[in-house]
Write a protein that binds this DNA or RNA. Structure first.
Lengths: 226, 226
DNA sequence: CGACCATTTGATATGGATCAAGCGATGTGG
DNA sequence: CCACATCGCTTGATCCATATCAAATGGTCG
C-alpha cells in the first residue's frame, strides 16, 4: 500500500487546481484550500480496495481509474477521472474500490477528516460534499444503464461520454488502453476493437490512430446510445 | 404524472416510520418529522423520469422499484427499496429515473426544499443527506459490479442481497416478479427462471413457491457471488 | 369452472467470448 | 542506424452463454 506521509506539508495550490477546472460541475472550493498536491506515475496505485479511506482526491492533470476486482481476477472499472474530477470520497472508512493512475497524474489530496470537520461548521462545504457524492451517484447510475446495452451501444456511449468531457468536442485523445475501455464497458478487448472498426466502416467515427478518435456522425452515435 | 397536492396536510407519523426501521443504516430522523404519509397501489407510479424532483421518499411498508427506460423499451431497474429505505433524492431538480410501487406501499413524502433548508442550519441533517446519497452510491457501485457477472452469479448475488435485507435471513418472500428481477439483473425472465431451477437442483436453494426462496447453502451462493 | 397472468420448460439462434494469428508502432541493443 | 524484441491493437475462426421464440403448466380471481 501507498502511504501519504508528509502530504500535509505540501505547498498550497488552490488557484492552480481551480484554473484547471473552469466549468467544473462540482463546486469544490474547500478542497484546493486544504489539499496538498501529489504525483503518481502511470499505472501506479493511488489507493487499494479495503484500505483505510483517509483521503479524498481531486485530479489536477492526467487520468485516474477506479475499479473493483472479482475473486477470479475479472476487473470492473467504475469510472475514469479527468482533471477537475473528485474521487475517493466514500461512506465508511474503507475504500470500496482501488484507484490507479492511467497516465502520469497530479492530484490534490485532502484529509477526509478535516473536510468533514469543516463541513460540520460550514454549510456550504457540507453541500459541496453532498454534491460530489451526488455527481458520482449519477455517474454510477448512468454507467449501470450502459452495462445492459449492446456492445455497439456501449462503445458509442463511451465515445460520446469522453467527447463531452474533452475540450475539443469532436476530436478525442483516449488516455486509456483498449483493455481499460473493455473493463469499463464490461466487454473484451477484441469486441471493443471490432466495434471501433465497425463504427469507422460505418463512417460514424474516424480513427487516425488507435488512441485518437474523431466523431464524424454524432446523430448515429446518439441513436446507438439508446 | 402524479401530483402531490395536499401531501403537506397529512398527519405526522414519525414514530410509526421509525418503528419500521429498527436497524436502518441511514439515520433519517428529520425525514419523519417533516414528512407526510402517502399510499400507492401496486404498480402505480410514484414519480416519472424527467419530472421535477420536489420530494424525496422513505418507504414505510411495501416495496418500491426505480428504473430507467431506453428508447426501444428495455427497462433497467436500478434498485428495490424496502421499508426504511430512502429514495428519490437526486442532484438537480429533475428525477433521472422513475419510481413505482412493486406492491401496495406506504411512503413518507418530504419536501426536498424544506430538507435542504434545514440542512443549511443543521449540520446533522446535512450529514444525513450525505449519508443517504452515499448509501445509494455504494448500492449503485455494487450493482454495477453485479452486471458484469455471469447469470448464475447475478441470481445468487441477488438472493443473498434480498436475504440480507429481509428479517428472516434464510427464508425470503420475494415481493417482485421474475420480470422485475430480470430487469434488475440485466437478464431475461427465462434465464432467471432457469437459473433458479438450477440452483434448486444443485441444492443451493429451495423453492416452496415461485415467490418464496429458502437459502439452503450460503457457502455455494457466496462462492458464486464472486 | 374458466380466463388470465406468471412462471417454467423446451428448441433454436446469436452476440460476444475465447482461442489464435498477424500487424504496426515503439524502443533497445548490437 | 538497422535488426529484432515487445507491446498494444486488430483481425480471423470457432464456441458458448444467454437471448429469443414457442408451448406447456400452474396459480389466482371473478
Amino acid at each position: 500500500m501507498l502511504t501519504h506521509d508528509a502530504i500535509q506539508s505540501g505547498p498550497f495550490k488552490s488557484t492552480l487546481a481551480r484554473a484547471q477546472v473552469p466549468g467544473a460541475e462540482a463546486p469544490t472550493g474547500a478542497i484546493e484550500m486544504m489539499g496538498a498536491p501529489m504525483s503518481f506515475k502511470r499505472n501506479s496505485e493511488i489507493y487499494g480496495e479495503n484500505e483505510p479511506a483517509e483521503y479524498l482526491y481531486k485530479v489536477v492533470s492526467g487520468t485516474v481509474r477506479t475499479y473493483k476486482t472479482l475473486l477470479d481476477g475479472r476487473r470492473q472499472i467504475g469510472a475514469f477521472y479527468l482533471p477537475g474530477d473528485v474521487f475517493g470520497l466514500e461512506r465508511g472508512d474503507q475504500h470500496t474500490a482501488s484507484a490507479e493512475a492511467v497516465t502520469d497524474a497530479k492530484v490534490i489530496v485532502v484529509k477526509r477528516k478535516s473536510l468533514f470537520a469543516l463541513a460540520q461548521r460550514d454549510a456550504e462545504v457540507a453541500r459541496d460534499l453532498w454534491t460530489i457524492t451526488s455527481v458520482e451517484l449519477q455517474r454510477a447510475q448512468d454507467h449501470m444503464l450502459a452495462l445492459v446495452k449492446t456492445a455497439e451501444e456501449r462503445v458509442a456511449g463511451f465515445l460520446l461520454e469522453m467527447a463531452d468531457r474533452a475540450s475539443a468536442k469532436n476530436q478525442i485523445e483516449l488516455p486509456m488502453s483498449r483493455q481499460d475501455i473493455a473493463d469499463y464497458l464490461g466487454l473484451t478487448i477484441e469486441t471493443v476493437s471490432r466495434t471501433m472498426t465497425h463504427l469507422e466502416n460505418t463512417a460514424a467515427i474516424e480513427l487516425p490512430s488507435s488512441r485518437r478518435v474523431v466523431l464524424r456522425n454524432r446523430a448515429t452515435l446518439g441513436r446507438l446510445n439508446g
